[in-house]
Amino acid sequence: MINKVVTGADEAIRDIKDGSTLMLGGFGLCGIPENCITALVKKGVKRLTCISNNAGVDDFGIGLMLQQRQVKKMISSYVGENAEFERQLLSGELEVELIPQGTLATRCMAAGYGMPAIFTPAGVGTEVAEGKEIRNFNGKDYLMEYAFDADFALVKAWKGDTTGNLIFRSTSRNFNPVMAMAGKITIAEVEELVEPGTLDPDHIHTPGVYVHRIFQGANYEKRIEQRTVRPRN
């Protein structure tokens, strides 16, 4: 039986080095690879290019890596409220490429499906289209967008087995499955690591073939960014 298990985040990220390109799953702070981020902060690797829908908040998620000046470039769709991010951007320390959210997801998907590029209408006629090839299909213009090329994908799943099969929970799925498919090396951290045969094959979201290393994470904070509730009656 193939076994992808590593001891923890430190071993999983051992060969991430200065200048690596990383994908990080999650939407806002939901479904982010918390343990891998902590390990990257500890390791102190620098000049990283991070492909992630968002950039965390000041003191959590990718924000922790920004505080340590580990990120050279962010490729995101929305960078939201993050004072340190804003400071580094305005001072020129940090490079940011903003791309439409669907384009971001689909460029991951293309990489995982072995397709070099996709055509999307998102951004046609806007500054996003500058310098990009445009093709007309059935009377409508589309931009050609390339598949991402990432050294590592860091994803967070709910359950996984030792062969790398993954199941995600609720909307913490978001970018995780498409990024898992797209990394040259994909590292999955899971809340619960189980033996093969425990997970129903029909319920697997990401087949283990896409996952190179897996470990059971610890101490998940799962911080809520916008706590919204309704009164009982």
Binding site: T106, W158, S170, R173, N174, R223, Q226
Partner: peptide, 24 residues
């Protein structure tokens, strides 16, 4: 539920008939 948010990052709920999928 920290795993269940909307695109505004607010905590929400599902309904009978809801479905979940990836960003692509």
């Amino acid at each position: 539920d920290a795993d269940l948010i909307n695109a505004g990052k607010q905590t929400i709920t599902t309904l009978p008939g809801s479905s979940i999928f990836d960003s692509a």
